[in-house]
């Protein structure tokens, strides 16, 4: 028996999505093969690795999660700046936690002002996330879309119950969106179909929702893998959007991450690495050390 490397070629590509604008804009997706399979296909863009920023002082974070930012954690603009200048983040993910209706319930206009300030002072690709509350998020994200018109933000999560309003505002003001459907590849596809009736597919990133290591990580892993297979192998156009994974918030909630700094960083980095291996194109980290580790390991 003679050996021939069993290479697999796919005639389609995952869509390429642009984040941000100007010279610091970044592309994600665009590959025609499975993650890290440069031996059999093309992966024009490395995965996007984003660093999380909160728009308010974090409560109840493990000391070692807060440590890297403790001098700036009450000022989102300075937090964002430190993330970029000191920790080398090339994409930021601003979580508008202040708008949580169960918490501070800050007004959409207030939140939008913070986003605008960060955009003006840093001008790097920015993901802006609401709190997952459909009504409030749609008010907040519409306001953000308006305040940052033309900046090509990535806005989310866009859900089944608020996709129409948010996507309409994103379209009008030139932003991309994160379409979120929880833990079910079919729901991901349904939402994409609904969106693509009026929204450009090359402006959509999908979020199957993330679970942390030890808390259902394998479900997220397998859903990301199956979305990528539907897209590349079955050539399903509605499954060719890049995949988004918001892992910091899930990982740092676990008691294991709160036990020690080493274990916490590894909890997050392991979860992130696993989703990258499944095919995630954009991953949000909370700890700069977890992000740095992953970046150095996937680029050598």
């Amino acid at each position: 028996m003679t050996y021939e490397a069993p290479l697999e070629k796919h005639p389609v590509n995952i869509r390429e999505v642009v984040l941000g604008e100007g010279e610091k804009a970044q592309k994600i997706g665009g590959e025609n093969t499975f993650p890290f399979h440069s031996f059999e296909g093309s992966l024009p863009n490395p995965p996007g690795l984003a660093l999380e920023v909160l728009d308010m002082q974090p409560e109840n974070w493990a000391t070692w999660a807060l440590d890297p930012f403790k001098d700036v954690s009450s000022d989102p603009v300075e937090w964002a700046r430190k993330g970029v200048e000191e920790y080398g983040a090339e994409i930021l993910c601003l979580r508008l936690l202040s708008t949580d209706p169960m918490g501070m319930d800050a007004a959409p206009e207030e939140a939008a002002k913070t986003v605008r300030k960060i955009v003006d002072s840093l001008n790097i690709p920015l993901i802006v996330l609401g709190t997952g509350t459909e009504d409030k998020d749609s008010k907040v994200l519409i306001e953000v879309a308006r305040a940052c018109s033309g900046k090509n933000l990535l806005l989310g999560p866009v859900l089944k119950g608020n996709y129409q309003e948010i996507a309409k505002a994103a379209l009008e003001h030139g932003h991309a969106i994160v379409a979120q459907a929880s833990m079910d590849a079919n729901l991901t596809k349904e939402l994409n179909i609904a969106l693509c009736k009026f929204f450009p597919p090359e402006k959509i990133v999908v979020d199957p929702t993330s679970s942390a290591l030890g808390y259902g990580m394998e479900y997220t892993f397998s859903i990301i893998e199956s979305i990528k297979q539907f897209g590349l192998v079955d050539k399903d156009k509605m499954m060719q959007m890049p995949v988004f994974a918001d892992i910091g918030i899930e990982c740092w909630r676990t008691k294991e991450a709160r036990e020690s700094a080493e274990q916490g960083i590894l909890w997050e980095a392991t979860t992130g690495m696993t989703f990258l291996l499944a095919g995630a194109n954009l991953v949000v980290f909370r700890h700069p050390e977890a992000l740095r580790l992953i970046k150095s390991m996937i680029s050598y």
Binding site: E256, S260, E262, Q263, L266, T270, M273, T274, L277, L293
Partner: peptide, 30 residues
């Protein structure tokens, strides 16, 4: 850290055995 991550990545992608020099709980438990 890299070793722990590489070990988990290789287990995800089909390794039957991973050989590691790690023995600390914080690195092995994840």
């Amino acid at each position: 850290y890299e070793e722990a991550l590489a070990a988990s990545a290789l287990m995800t992608k089909y390794a039957g055995i991973v050989v590691t020099s790690l023995t600390e709980k914080e690195f092995i438990f994840p």
